[in-house]
Design a protein around this nucleic acid. Structure first.
Length: 384
RNA sequence: UCCGAGGUAGCGCAGCGGUAGCGCAGUUGGCUGUUAACCAAUUGGUCGUGGGUCCGAAUCCCACCCUCGGAG
């Protein structure tokens, strides 16, 4: 059986429904992947997760390499056993972290160059203790083998959109050379823990059509199991994201899953990239926003699709966050109670809001998939 | 009753001659392949009361009121 199975393409949009088969279970697409960077979806435990029923979650190679270290996770029998989650997991390679943490440190004006990019790989300093580390395409893959996620990512360089053409091109070409090395390294052992690991390549090229197309051609030409679209604007600047998808999609074979990295700040963003042909996406927003008191609601309830439950307007609002939501939070608690929990800084506030937001995203994708299978995705998109 | 300390934003405090600030709370924003239970902005005050000195007083002087210690 092939890794990815394309089930149906919507007749009026680029949206598609499929299934990814892994040794830890099947993943129906389109799929939203909750983020659990440090082997934990913040505020939830795996019992909560089973109730929410995501088909796959994310973790991060950068964070897990620094703490507790890939060798310890390997010793535990792999990430699934370590964190007691026997469903599919995807790890990001850490390319984005090296980039984003570097940017943050530079903005703070901290001393020294914290990230040094060379042909071989990236030298970076740990945000935890300042120690020196090196990620090469080979070491990033080896780390991910030991950690043992079902889907692992190529080590790439995420260039800022503001970078000049020359640098953007250099970085993209370096990402391409690294992609070849990632594929080579991965071939050495595609089942470190006894089950199959799938490798995804990442298209870069910032907001330049020619670069994006060149990158799409190059990355799809390599032996990757899936194709990701990365970059600073993806998920952040939705207009740019939609354009990039248009440029890139014609070059990606239909029999490979497509992953737009970091999309989901607004639930509606998921629907847009699905229309553009994406199958997978992850975003820290649903969980982070939840911890900050922002809960998702439908367009009918609020034009911005989210409520700040900490606002005084909810002090005496004894209705659930969303009337038609079936999550644990909405079934059992009121806005007023959530408001109170946030106000009183009770930890359960974070968990209950997180449960709601993740449920919201997963349910939205369930509806999207149904709509695709019935060729009414265009209407669904419009009605949202 | 005496002695001491003190009364400044809702609370805790700083300012001690040039017409008021900070923290918290309150209110409102912002969150990209998570260094984020985070970050940012912002509303609140005839400085206990009355008088005096001074060009000018939260700040110096006097009286009174109140609070908290200690003594009796």
């Amino acid at each position: 059986m092939s890794f990815f199975e394309l089930i149906h393409e919507d007749k009026n949009t680029g949206a598609r429904a499929g299934i990814m088969h892994t040794d830890h279970g099947d993943i129906p697409t389109p799929v939203f992947m909750p983020v659990g960077t440090q082997a934990s979806v913040k505020t939830l435990d795996q019992t909560d997760l089973l109730t929410l029923n995501p088909k796959i979650i994310l973790a991060n190679n950068y964070h897990l390499h620094l703490r507790p270290g890939e060798d310890l996770i390997a010793q535990a029998g792999g990430l699934h056993k370590f964190m007691h989650w026997d469903r599919p997991i995807l790890t990001d390679s850490g390319g984005f972290q090296v980039f984003s943490l570097g940017i943050q440190k530079e903005l703070k004006g901290q001393q020294g160059k914290l990230v040094k990019i060379g042909e071989d790989g990236v030298h970076f300093r740990s945000h935890i203790d300042g120690s020196d580390h090196l990620f090469t395409p080979e070491s990033a893959i080896e780390c991910q083998h030991k950690i043992g996620a079902d889907i692992i990512m190529a080590f790439d360089e995420c260039t800022p959109d503001g970078a000049d053409l020359k640098y953007t091109k250099e970085a993209m070409e370096r990402t391409h050379r690294w992609a070849v090395r990632c594929v080579e390294e991965h071939k050495k052992n595609t089942s470190y823990h006894g089950y199959r690991q799938f490798l995804f390549g990442i298209i870069q090229g910032a907001n330049h059509e020619e670069f994006r197309q060149e990158s799409a051609k190059y990355i799809t030409g390599l032996d990757f199991d899936g194709i990701a679209i990365g970059g600073e604007s993806i998920g952040y600047n939705m207009e740019a994201t939609e354009n990039i998808l248009k440029w890139v999609m014609p070059f990606i074979p239909k029999d490979k899953p497509r992953y737009t990295m970091g999309v989901g700040l607004d639930p509606a963003d998921l629907l847009k990239v699905v229309a553009g042909g994406a199958d997978m996406f992850d975003c820290v927003a649903p969980t982070r926003l939840a911890r900050h008191g922002m809960v998702f609601v439908s367009t009918k309830q609020d034009p911005k699709r989210r409520l700040n439950i900490k606002n005084s307007a909810f002090t005496k609002d004894f209705s659930p966050i969303s009337e038609d939501c079936t999550c644990l939070t909405c079934k059992n608690y009121t806005r007023a109670y959530l408001h109170h929990l946030f106000n009183a800084q009770e930890l359960s506030a974070l968990r209950l809001a997180t449960i709601h937001n993740i449920h919201f995203m997963l349910d939205l994708m369930r509806q999207a998939r149904e709509a695709i299978l019935e060729d009414r995705y265009a209407e669904f998109l419009k009605s949202y």
